[in-house]
Design a protein around this nucleic acid. Structure first.
Length: 218
DNA sequence: ACCCAGGGTCATA
DNA sequence: TATGACCATGGG
């Protein structure tokens, strides 16, 4: 079983996902912070509140008192921490000259700069790199670990960077990596919600024939 | 009432 | 390096 075959199976079953659901790259990045360990449904409510308060720009977020910002993003959970993280990110964003200036950095430099922001870890940074900056970076999340260890393609104990390299190397021959990685991660998330959450429903799962789930649990 | 979600930081050993 | 505690809402 290859990474490309798994991708094709998911794509044929679920179709194109056209991620990331947002109106602008900046909104992608805000969403990436708000969705940390949180259901996307709750993030949408928070973003709607930010939009209705005209707080979907770096400057307007920084102009908002942290306590008020926390109220607006309350539905996304962890609202006190996340309001701090949003402000950290916005300060960084403006100090680096905004989107156009950041886009001139190469991918490694941009990734390093993102990871220096308090509140942005590897997955959040890679969400931003792939879905806001269109860089060929494969996003690793808990679903990726779960699905591919059940497929016995990884053991699940690898570190984040190790897994990222595994996926990026395994798909190195592919032409349009940004589009492929974009769809692939989206398909992993959609598929996991349907079939591979911590309470799996394996009936009519498109990966059933390759999946090892029963042997793992019994 | 319990489990989980499109993580990350910090203190401790 | 590797655990554990903590953050907090809303849907199933």
């Amino acid at each position: 079983m290859t990474l490309l075959q798994v991708y094709q199976t998911l794509y044929q079953h679920y179709g194109p996902q056209s991620w990331w659901p947002a109106d602008s790259p900046f909104e992608v990045m805000v969403g990436a912070i708000l969705t940390q360990n949180t259901a996307w449904n709750n993030v949408e409510k928070a973003i709607t509140l930010l939009r209705s308060n005209h707080a979907l720009s770096a400057q307007s977020i920084l102009n908002t008192p942290t306590s008020e910002l926390a109220e607006w993003i309350r539905p996304s959970g962890y609202f006190n921490i996340k309001s701090e993280r949003l402000k950290n990110f916005c300060t960084w964003f403006l100090e680096h000259g905004g989107l156009s200036a950041l886009n001139k950095l190469d991918t490694e430099a941009l990734r390093h700069a993102l990871l220096a922001v308090k509140g942005i870890g590897p997955e959040t940074a890679d969400d931003m790199l792939l879905y806001a900056f269109q860089r060929p970076v494969f996003v690793i999340d808990a679903y990726t670990r779960r699905i591919f260890s059940r497929l016995q393609m990884i053991n699940g104990e690898e570190g984040y960077e190790g897994l990222r390299h595994y996926f990026e190397q395994g798909l190195a021959d592919y032409q349009d990596k940004v589009s492929l990685f974009n769809e692939y991660h989206a398909l992993i998330v959609i598929h996991a919600k349907m079939h591979c959450s911590k309470r799996p429903s394996c009936e009519s799962c498109p990966l059933e024939s390759m999946c090892d789930f029963q042997r793992h649990t019994t």
